[in-house]
Design a protein around this nucleic acid. Structure first.
Length: 511
RNA sequence: GCGGGCGUAGUUCAAUGGUAGAACGGCAGCCUUCCAAGCUGCACACGAGGGUUCGAUUCCCUUCGCCCGCUCCA
């Protein structure tokens, strides 16, 4: 696809999601708020299905994974231990001309002083020889300006020490020209609030930027009570918050999002790479099981030099979004960094005692982390299709259809009376609805021509349409009495079956 | 956060310095024996705030939001 059609494709997804009640801009009546989304009736169903599938497959179907729901707001020290507080408080400086951004404490500058008078400023980024670089730049500066006199040795300072009246005079390391640098600003990606009656430094708390820390902080509690044996995992689904500078690409990057994370604890002597691979494969298979085509998935291994010092390896499962291949699921081997950090900060030993080996150790961890929102978007992008369907007169017309995997579809089956002005059809159709409703999310619709009703369901991805017609009532004899037609969303083919077989049939297709 | 583009019914679009139309969609009714049929009726919009003006959806400013490109993504 060309760039234009990729963008057009996204716009179709966005407007379908709005039109059919999957996704709304948050607070729309007040003009909206950037980076937050609401999920309408069908969106809420779709997300519930995503969460339920994950939870069933990740937790309930396994002997070695247990669930957890930790609080969104935790003790502020959690985020000091995890590194989020320090990592988020770096003051940053923007160059308005080059659009580059620098950490203020890594951007150095010095006044050029000739014969005791300040002639201007030079700047350089932190390196092994920042001082020499500044000295050389000062000499070049003096030569270019043809200044006579004695150049004093430069005194390097970092940008956090720049006085407000100096900032406009300091050249950008990117352009060499002064006047384009902003004052240092702190970019703290954590949303914060105050807990309790007082609003001061001591009452600051953060909305979690990831759910993972809950599993680490509660590690001992789970081990002591959960009857778990290494290797084992702790899984959690929940909202997380990051004050993203640029939320973009619909729900791909937002400020409030929902994560599904699992920390798989293994022995420090176990082969982490084996488990890393195991979970990458598990995640890929799971994605395929919810209807994401394997052909749109790829893997990206983070290069060693870019990994955090504690990380042994991180692999992202990438999905080919309309706006490019982007991270969908990150599988990180985090060593024992997190547990060790919490042991250090809390003073509580984060160890596991291996009864068989009579040995105590800090487990290592492999973490598959994914967002409900990104999976939802990947599913929507994978499912969207336009094909041809015949109209009443047999003429081909284009049809919009969401080809959701049945297990993920918000509505599993729609129930229709062929005509709504025939009370017998309506009554029978409602009977069928009531038969299925305790087991499946079904939708009853009698408004409009039957073809229109099929199309409406196509657009929201309902895999099956069940129609009650005159044959159901026995118009053509007992052979067909109490049979209905079941129409397949993708093939548009119909199959007639006994109402008594209907539930069994649908369940077999859906699970 | 920076630069560019854009904000009109649910959606996709039109028109206009004198307070807005269409198509599709929605709802109700009639009709209709399987793929968006037809007829009738109904509801629904100028993102927000300020300014200029006798009068602003239209011009200007601000703001919010969306899209694109940078940046960011620990």
């Amino acid at each position: 696809m060309s760039e234009l059609t990729e963008n057009a494709f996204m716009e179709k997804i966005v407007s379908l999601c709005k039109r059919r009640g999957f996704i709304f801009q948050s607070s729309e009546i007040y003009g909206g708020i950037n980076g937050f989304w609401d999920f309408g009736p069908l969106g809420a169903e779709l997300r519930k299905n995503i969460r339920d599938c994950w939870w069933n497959d990740m937790v309930r179907s396994r002997d070695d994974v247990v669930g957890l729901e930790s609080a969104i707001i935790m003790h502020p020290k959690v985020w000091e231990a995890s590194g989020h507080v320090a990592g988020f408080n770096d003051p940053m400086v923007d160059c308005k001309v080059s659009k580059q951004r620098f950490r203020a404490d890594q951007l150095f500058f010095a006044a050029v002083i000739v014969d005791g008078k300040a002639a201007g400023y030079v700047s350089a980024l932190e390196s092994e020889k920042t001082a020499e670089e500044l000295q050389e730049k000062a000499e070049t500066f003096k030569r270019k300006k043809a200044l006579a006199g004695k150049l004093e040795p430069v005194q390097a300072r970092d940008f956090t020490q720049a006085k407000p009246d100096e900032i406009p005079l300091i050249p950008s390391p990117a352009t060499g020209e002064a006047g384009s640098l902003t004052a240092p600003r702190a970019f703290n990606m954590m949303l914060q609030t105050w807990v309790g009656a007082l609003r001061d430094e001591s009452s600051i708390a953060y909305l979690r930027p990831e759910t993972a820390q809950g599993m680490f902080v509660d590690f001992k509690a789970v081990v002591d009570t959960g009857r778990v044996k290494i290797p084992f995992g702790v899984a959690q689904i929940g909202k997380s918050f990051r004050n993203e500078i640029t939320p973009r690409n619909f729900i791909f990057r937002s400020r409030e999002f929902e994560q599904m994370e699992m920390e798989y604890f293994i022995s420090d002597e176990d082969d982490w790479a084996k488990w890393h691979r195991y979970w990458i494969d598990w995640c890929r298979n799971w994605l395929v099981s919810v209807g994401i085509p394997a052909a749109k998935l790829s893997e990206y291994n983070h290069p060693r030099e870019k990994l955090s010092h504690y990380s042994k390896g991180t692999t992202d499962i990438m999905f080919q979004f309309p706006f490019g291949a982007q991270e969908l699921w990150g599988i990180a081997a985090r060593g024992n960094y997190d547990l060790s950090q919490h042991a250090k900060f809390s003073g509580v030993a984060m160890e596991y005692f291996d009864d068989a080996a009579r040995r105590r150790f800090v487990p290592h961890v492999v973490e598959p982390a994914v967002g409900v929102d990104r999976i939802m978007l990947a599913i929507l992008c994978s499912a969207y299709a336009e094909d041809e369907a015949p109209d009443e007169k047999g003429k081909m017309e284009s049809r919009v259809v969401l080809r959701f995997a049945p297990r993920i579809a918000p509505v599993k089956a729609a129930i229709f009376p062929l005509l709504k002005n025939k009370p017998e059809l309506v009554a029978k159709a409602k009977e069928v609805r009531d038969l299925l409703r305790p087991h499946l999310n079904v939708f009853y619709d009698e408004a409009g021509a039957i073809g229109r009703r099929y199309r409406r369901q196509d657009e929201i991805g309902t895999p099956f349409g069940v129609t009650v017609d005159f044959d159901t009532l026995g118009e053509k004899g007992d052979e067909l009495r109490d049979t209905v037609t079941v129409r397949d969303r993708d093939t548009m083919k119909q199959e007639r079956m006994k109402i008594s077989k209907l539930l069994e049939f649908l369940l077999s297709k859906i699970h």
